[in-house]
Simulated scan of single mutants.
Amino acid sequence: MGMLFGTLVFVCLLSSVCSVSPAPHPADECSMSSKQRSFRLITTCNSTTLKKKQLVEIRSSTTTLYLPVLYVLAFIVGLPSNLLALWVLVFRTKRLPSTTLLINLTVADCLLLLVLPFRIVYHFRGNNWELGEPFCRVVMAVFYGNMYGSVLCLAFVALDRYMALVHPFAAKTLRSQRTAVCMAAVVWVVVLAAMLPLLVSQQTFKLNEPNITTCHDVLDSDFQQNFLLPYFVTLFTSCFLLPFLVILYCHSAVLHTLLAEGKRYGHAVCVTVLVLLVFIMCLLPSNILLLIHYIKKSDDLYLPYMFTLAISTFNSCIDPFIFYYVSAEFREKTRSALSCSRDSRDKPSSLGTNASYSSSSSGLRSKVTLLSISRRQGTSEMV
């Protein structure tokens, strides 16, 4: 199901690109005034020639060496781990609500990692894009779409764990395969809608000095001021801040519930730490710098922003480790796959056999025991 959603969205992206108008002829670009074009996250450029400071920055080793090296590292670490995670989730685990959400998150990460080589070549060749306007739009839409799609998927995963562990009786009704598919569909629809502005707006500009064609580094100034400011503020609020608050609340409630019942909560702590790491270290800096640029019109944020944008791709490397701690079955199947042992599907789940059915003379104690059993049943798939 996750692969189906990912394929459908990718086809929609390509269809959107094919339907938009082609990029302006270079001669039209040369006639633009300094107010009509600006360097990404830097002050307005003069015609098609960058100012001296901008020229130094776009040619600096930060953008032509260190950034692609970071992307290479993310690609080397992230692609094998996500392909392994996708294989385990699709072919070796039961199709549970949590599994469906994790599959869709993995598909989003794989899409990003598959377009990273094009960004790597772009930066290694001195920020020169040679693959055409339409493909630049697709790459940037996938690039930003993964960021906000991952946030939404992680929010739904946290909500699913919250229902399973904090409200186990209600979860029996609310948690279903149909609900998970609807959540996944919401994620892809929101991502596609959010990325449409990048798909229908010009992303490449040819510069005279240096003689390169940039991809998303030079954008129309009026478009940035009149549209991109409210656009990115809306994205930050609805696709980053709100899901982040949901994640914080759900993980806090899960930890509180486990502590109150005196249960082991090591896995839950690992999940919380990894999710916070994704947000605070990978995604928060680039979103904050982007907002500061458009709100305060700062002139010195290009290199810091590009660096934090490269760091944001490492969220795809951390996601498989989140899967490892979220799903007990995923842990079993991954160990089995890596050790080439027999299929652990025949092994009983240790988490599922820990439920205690001992009776108690106290009615309240019996109620707590039943609640604990129900929670442990949810825990067997989502701890």
Score class of each variant (00 low, 15 high):
H251A: 02
M140F: 10
R178H: 11
S359G: 07
V278E: 13
A155S: 11
D220V: 01
P320A: 08
R119N: 15
V11G: 04
V383K: 08
F323P: 13
A23I: 09
I103M: 08
F223E: 04
F124L: 15
Y324K: 14
Y302S: 05
A180L: 10
F143W: 10
A108C: 14
L291Q: 15
Q224R: 03
L255P: 00
L259Y: 10
V142F: 09
C12W: 02
L284D: 06
L207Q: 04
Y66L: 10
L276K: 11
I120M: 12
Q377R: 05
P320L: 09
D28T: 12
S372D: 13
R161W: 12
L245N: 10
C153E: 03
S341P: 02
D220F: 04
M382E: 09
L113S: 01
F169G: 14
L89N: 03
V157F: 08
F307G: 07
R40N: 06
V77C: 06
L207K: 04
G266N: 05
S238P: 07
A193I: 13
L111V: 01
L111A: 02
L111Y: 00
L290F: 12
V17A: 05
E381D: 09
S38V: 11
C340K: 03
C12N: 00
F307E: 05
S298V: 14
W129T: 04
V181E: 09
L102A: 05
R92T: 01
N82A: 04
L14G: 12
Y324C: 14
V121G: 05
S16Y: 08
P197H: 01
S327V: 06
Y305N: 04
